[in-house]
Amino acid sequence: MLDYVRLEVRRTLRDRGFVIFGIGMPVLMYVLMTNIGTGPGGAPMEWKTASMVGMAAYGALGAALGAGTGVAEDKQLGWLRQLRITPMGPVRVVVGRGLTGSVTVLPAIAAVLLVGALVNGVRMAAWQWAALAALLWIGTAPFTLLGLGNGYRLSAQSTGVVNTGCMLLLSIIGGLWFPAELFPGWLRTLSAWTPGNRFAELGQSVTQGGAPGLGAVAVLAAWMALFGGYAVYAYRRAARTV
């Protein structure tokens, strides 16, 4: 199965679209949002830090959903069908895909954090950097499952569109682009129930020197259970026709 993960990671990283939009976009947006229209003194350090977490979360979220887009493409190519007649069992294919997602989220997280530290001068304790990266990494799991569910359920074309839509919606409503504090009251309340918001909160709490709150973990866990159920359902339906 590790061979499969290696193969799929390689394929993802060779995808120019993934590199440009999955890694380049969050970095570019981070640089722009913290350096344009911020006055002579530049943006306050709190915003540079908060936006760093938000953009890293946005990039990771997109890459996690992208794992599912890959599944839909492979389904269309007949590659999933071909895999079914290798000794590698179908469960290992799905798990391998999930693990692939967990690897391909790393470049975006790393790139945004590096730009934060090197370009924007964000300073934190070493443990905070480590904990931030680790939480952003683990927290992508629900989005990977959502992406896989879409990938198995939908055609290649719709998966691309739906996953991109999910990414934008979850990022914007979740307050990854603009802080949720700027939203009107009702949207703010709604935002607090979305997985994107709570995903970023995992990271924000670490940058403020604390541990993630129970609420954030609980909401994320609930979404993960929901998306996990969806992925299993979608996979079972697709397994008959793949």
Binding site: D3, Y4, L7, R10, R11, R14, D15, E73, D74, L77, G78, W79, R81, Q82, I85, T86, P87, M88
Partner: peptide, 29 residues
Amino acid sequence: GRVGAMLQDGKAVPRVTVRELITFVAATY
């Protein structure tokens, strides 16, 4: 691992080399 098959409707898997692909498939057997 007793069966190998060439399906009629299979298309090329993008972004891998021939050797990478065959090496991967071989390793599953």
